[in-house]
Design a protein around this nucleic acid. Structure first.
Length: 562
RNA sequence: UGGGGCGUCGUCAAGUGGUAAGACACGAGGUUUUGGUCCUCGCAUUCGCGGGUUCGAAUCCUGCCGCCCCAACCA
């Protein structure tokens, strides 16, 4: 698990920070921040930003702030700030006592807006949203100045104060910067600074009737906190000139610098809070932390560890080109860890009864099984073996070719660590489906080796029927069936109808009493963990974190089942 | 009147003038009481394309092509 003190992390951002330090910038400080808007749950994409920002601060002996970008009261809720904090803690990103909110700075921001008005760099505009859009021009045509652009500062000051006091309706006025309506960068065409919004804010309550926009809050918040490197995603590249304009034109205590990187995209998933919110609202998934969701809380519930997510992020790197990472890399990162650390247990997902006809009726043997072949120190345990057992339905075929190493009528296989078992008879239901196998065992093969040296090709996992624990197991698969669900139409249409299959499984008895969150490998099936929401001691619920690599399935698919 | 970014293997990604790292995926073998793990081998004569500079170019110059972002009172 720790082959990864690896080569020192290096990417263009860390290189830049290193250069800045070497050049003696920022008094030798490094100070980063993660600035989520509390309008939804965090997803894997955010882990890239969190781990980068926190990692850079750590690596250069700097500080890391958590700052909620809460300038839009209509979409923001305390539930979201709580979930965000829980996710950061779980990931191990420690903001110490520096938990801030853009709303902490509303008073300062208001003063700074007044400062701009006084310096003839902002004005109160009475255009409505439609007019503002028209006056702004297009990407290829210059815009036109608002008729209010030359409103005297005294008048703007008065109007702005009255906006704040709630004297006007929403939408009646805005405060805008006075920059350049013909600027090639649309963001510089007299951008909006404040809008009237008589909404209840999750922290400031009803104190404010006006709220600053992102552009007027973000860089200034960075400046107030003394952030040295303000890392964000590529789409904010066009906002940077505006970011710098405010820093230059306001009496800020510090001049931070914005650096942009590519956001994370993953195949077979969507990575936008808006799109994830729709899945939740329309009941297409159970909740934000549905194990199929790419949210941090969803992955946590699915069984991912913080380490695996860090490993994943270490592998994908940080760069500026738009990219979509293969979901397999994420799955690989958790298998990689769990292969080393998870105990192996036997659990039968889709049970088929096996009766060993020559095994004494009331006999029970305790079979010794290694807990983890990758880790001898994990020790061994005893598993009961008896006359009636369960095996996996898919481990039996009445007839099959020699590529099928498992049990067939008349064939012999090994039951893991127990005995060689031979299938003598199949009992079927009315539809012809096998419902019970009558088998014999070879007492001389106890432990799973034959003294006469004969070989069997297959080894099956099994569970003693009388001792088995019943449990619900949720077999999760990709949420979407297409690698690029957003391509061509509505992503909802690309939802994978088989993203969840629920089965009633039989588990080996040693699993009784395991705590919520417990992870292990169900031998030959995958990695599983006990669900943190729905599992109870009486009725366990398990989630499949991910399958094992399955070369047999691949072979079968290739040969078309022949 | 457009501006700003970005193009290196199927997918990520190193590389910063000295002759294409690594990972995932994929393929072929071997080991194996998990068709898992592990091990071995293979997988870019070429860096979006074309010119140029140079003894030497993915790296420099130049022309073209392609993709992404910006015209919310969202962030």
């Amino acid at each position: 698990m720790s082959d990864d003190l690896e080569l020192e992390k290096s990417d263009f951002i860390r290189a830049q920070v290193k250069d800045d330090l070497a050049a003696g910038l920022n008094e030798g400080r490094v100070h980063t921040r993660f600035p989520p808007e509390p309008n939804g749950y965090l997803h894997v994409g955010h882990t890239k930003a969190i781990l980068l920002n926190y990692g850079v601060a750590q690596e250069f002996g700097g500080k890391f702030n958590l700052r909620f970008d809460d300038t839009n009261p209509e979409k923001e809720e305390t539930e979201y700030v709580d979930s965000i904090k829980a996710d950061l803690r779980w990931l191990g990103a420690d903001w110490e006592e520096r938990e801030f909110y853009a709303s902490d700075y509303f008073d300062t921001l208001y003063e700074w807006a007044v400062h701009l008005i006084n310096n003839d760099k902002a004005f109160v505009c009475s255009l409505n949203d439609e007019e503002i859009r028209q006056y702004r021009g297009t990407v290829k045509e210059a815009g036109r100045p608002s008729p209010d652009r030359d409103r005297p500062a005294a008048e703007s000051l008065d109007l702005f104060a009255r906006m704040k006091n709630g004297e006007f309706k929403e939408g009646q006025y805005t405060l805008r910067a006075k920059i350049d309506m013909s600027h090639a960068n649309m963001k510089m065409r007299d951008p909006l600074l404040y809008r009237i919004r008589k909404a209840h804010h999750h922290r400031t309550g009803d104190k404010w009737n006006i709220y600053p926009f992102y552009d007027f809050a973000h860089g200034q918040s960075d400046a107030i906190e003394g952030i040295t490197h303000s890392l964000c995603t590529l789409e904010f590249e066009v906002n940077r000139p505006l970011y710098d304009w405010f820093i230059e034109n306001l009496p800020v205590p510090y001049k931070p610098r914005q650096i942009e990187m590519a956001r994370l995209n993953l195949t077979y998933t969507v990575m936008s809070k808006r799109k994830l919110l729709r899945l939740v609202q329309e009941g297409l998934v159970e909740s934000w932390d549905d194990p199929r969701m790419p949210t941090i809380s969803g992955l946590r519930r699915l069984g991912y560890t913080p380490e695996s997510i860090k490993k994943f992020n270490g592998r994908i790197g940080v760069a500026k080109r738009d990219s979509t990472v293969d979901l397999d890399l994420l799955k690989w990162s958790i298998r990689e860890e769990l292969n080393q650390t998870a105990d192996r247990v036997m659990a039968v997902l889709k049970p088929l009864k096996v009766v060993i006809t020559n095994y004494p009726e009331d006999q029970v043997e305790e079979i010794e099984v290694a807990n983890n072949p990758e880790d001898e120190s994990a020790g061994t345990r005893l598993v009961p073996f008896s006359r009636e057992l369960y095996i996996e339905q898919e481990d039996f075929r009445e007839v099959a070719n020699r590529k099928f190493f498992r049990l067939k009528l008349g064939g012999e296989v090994r039951f893991k660590n127990a005995y060689f078992i031979k299938c003598e008879e199949v009992i079927k239901d009315d539809e012809g489906n096998p419902i019970e196998l009558r088998c014999t065992y070879d007492p001389a093969t106890r432990g799973g080796d034959s003294p006469d040296g004969r070989k069997v090709k297959g080894t099956l996992h099994w569970v003693s029927a009388a001792h088995a624990i019943d449990a619900e197991v949720r077999l999760y698969d990709n949420l979407f069936r297409e690698p690029f669900p957003e391509e061509g139409g509505d992503y909802i249409a690309n939802l994978n109808p088989d993203s969840l299959e629920v089965v009633q499984a039989k588990l080996e008895p040693g699993l009784a009493g395991k705590e919520v969150g417990f992870r292990c490998q169900f031998m030959r099936q995958g990695y599983f963990c006990i669900d943190s929401k729905d599992s109870t001691p009486d009725k366990m619920v398990w989630n499949r974190t991910t399958t094992l690599k399955d070369r047999w399935a691949k072979l079968e698919a290739k040969t078309g089942g022949k």
